[in-house]
């Protein structure tokens, strides 16, 4: 296993890229809503993503099981 600092340094840029992709998706959705003048009929996938980010940014995760929690969270959305 990599040391803590090495872990951050190794994977930071890839995580940055992935977060930017999520931000771009949310912007893309907002622009589409603005252009079409209406929201998606079913926004459950959007809400699921927003809830997932809350889960990630919230408090301590002593079990280091964020991934497992997200998979269980995403399993609620078809």
């Amino acid at each position: 296993m990599l040391e803590p600092q090495k872990t951050l340094d190794t994977y930071y840029l890839e995580a940055r890229r992935d977060l930017l992709e999520v931000a771009a998706l949310l912007d893309r959705y907002d622009r589409s809503v603005e252009k079409q003048g209406q929201k998606a009929e079913d926004e459950s996938r959007l809400n699921s993503l927003l809830e997932a980010m809350s889960l990630l940014s919230g408090g301590d995760h002593p079990k280091a099981n964020r991934t497992e929690q997200l998979l269980n969270h995403f399993a609620k959305v078809s």
Binding site: L13, R17, L20, E21, A24, D27, R28, R31
Partner: peptide, 17 residues
């Protein structure tokens, strides 16, 4: 770029905007 600059999807967002 694969990681460090703009991505293909984001480039199309910019082209649309």
């Amino acid at each position: 770029y694969p990681v460090t600059k703009c991505s293909p999807r984001r480039s199309v967002d910019i082209l649309e905007k």
